[in-house]
Amino acid sequence: MSILEVKDIKKKFENTEVLKGISFSMEEGQVVSIIGSSGSGKTTLLRCLNFIETPDEGIISVRGKELFNAANLSSDKHVREEDIRQNRLHFGMVFQHFNLFPQYTALENVALAPTLLKVKTEDEAKKEARELLDKMGLSDRMGNYPHQLSGGQQQRVAIARALAMHPDILCFDEPTSALDPELTGEVLKVIRSLAESHTTMIIVTHEMNFARDVSDTIIFMDQGVITEQGDAKELIDHPKMERTRQFLSAIAK
């Protein structure tokens, strides 16, 4: 059974249709990268999966369970809010701009959600947070506040924070785009090691070599539709569609 199945997601903002029917599925332990030019709807798709945006149409299922179906959107706002909150627990999100909580240390940022949601006691949550930060290579930075960390360190804290909730699927929206070039390596290394330990991930990225290396599948999006998807190396090395070829050669320049 697929861990994630997305069927015909559509999303409109005012009059512009940003997602025009997106369908794909992925298996547990797989890494899917989404590439495509600016404005093609990649961020919007991730935001729909994390229920920050509500799709106008479509179905999202995790492990065969239908989490969202636009056809039976409840009109009761309170029921809906609690449902949405529960649905979000299946997904994790790492933002382009990290969005760490400035008033908490690295350790507190990671332990906050498990503690508040009573998934764990505070001590257990802190213990796991230490282990996660350790894995991110941040053992000596746990007591630092976000403003005392480099962008690369902040992004690694953000990854640990998302992992602490043990999402089924971890999403990344251009995790290295806000970083100085010399800092992208340390973040990509961490994501690569997550891929090696079979963390299910969807990664929106402009780093083509990285996407080719770590992903099982690549999805190419253009103007709100999936133009081409397939095996990562195959798609990068031998794209079938003219549009994909154009995009890849433009990026290579």
Binding site: N50, R85, L89, H97, N99, F101, Q103, A162
Partner: peptide, 30 residues
């Protein structure tokens, strides 16, 4: 307060109340 602060709380599955009291409020006070 940047909207990203609310969104970061939301994607972690936090409740509206926790987002306001544990994340937003102190930043506003400052």
């Amino acid at each position: 307060i940047p909207v990203g602060q609310y969104e970061a709380g939301q994607v972690l599955g936090l409740t509206k109340k926790d987002i306001f009291f544990k994340i937003i409020l102190l930043q506003v006070v400052k």
